[in-house]
Computed example of a mutant assay.
Amino acid sequence: MQVTYDPDKRKLLSSLCHGAIFFSTTLFSIGVPIVINIISDDPVVKNNAKESINFHFNVWFWATVIGVPIAVLSFLTFGLGGILFFPVVALGFAIHWGLTIWALFHCLTNPDTPFRYPFIFRVF
């Protein structure tokens, strides 16, 4: 017996998982894919939720690895370090948001396959 899942519900829940990263400065953002992973029985939605959780961890990890030295340098140089490294920070945001928009587009146009972010480490 083959089980079918509602494609509109799949699109919505998968998009919510990936779109939650736009609120990554709050801890609420990782709660969305965690809750969806717990309550959903759809395997594609569960895979998208796990991938979104992994992407959250990657964003936070790289923001810490790159952001802390820039913040310290900026503090020590009275703001000059922040100005010099602004392109690095801007590139990080562009990659972060670009990958998220790509994931949302994939979830809305191809809801039957889970999205996989390239070049991230996966805990789950």
Rank of each mutant, 00 (worst) to 15 (best):
F78V: 07
T77V: 03
S15P: 08
F61N: 01
N54E: 10
P69S: 07
G19H: 04
L104M: 04
Y5L: 09
S24Q: 13
V59A: 15
L12K: 08
F22S: 06
I66L: 15
P69L: 06
N47G: 03
A90Y: 11
L108I: 12
W102H: 11
G81Q: 00
L99A: 09
T26S: 15
T4G: 13
C107I: 02
V123D: 02
P118H: 07
L99I: 06
R116M: 09
F124L: 12
S74E: 03
F105I: 12
N47M: 06
H56Y: 15
I34H: 06
H96L: 14
V44T: 12
D8Q: 15
A103H: 08
I21S: 09
G67I: 04
T77E: 03
V123W: 11
V65T: 13
D42W: 08
V59E: 09
F78A: 08
G92L: 02
S24N: 15
F93K: 04
I101G: 11
F121L: 05
P33I: 07
C107V: 01
T77P: 05
R122I: 07
F115D: 02
K50V: 04
F23W: 12
H18T: 08
S52T: 04
L76T: 05
F78S: 08
G82D: 02
D6F: 08
N54F: 11
L73W: 12
N54D: 13
A103C: 09
S14M: 07
K46Y: 06
F86D: 02
I36D: 05
L73P: 02
I66Q: 05
N47P: 00
D6K: 02
Y5A: 09
D41H: 14
T77M: 02
F61T: 13
F124C: 03
L108P: 07
K50S: 10
T113G: 03
T64A: 15
L99D: 07
G81Y: 01
A49F: 00
S52P: 07
G67F: 01
I66E: 09
G67E: 04
T100A: 14
T100L: 09
T77Y: 01
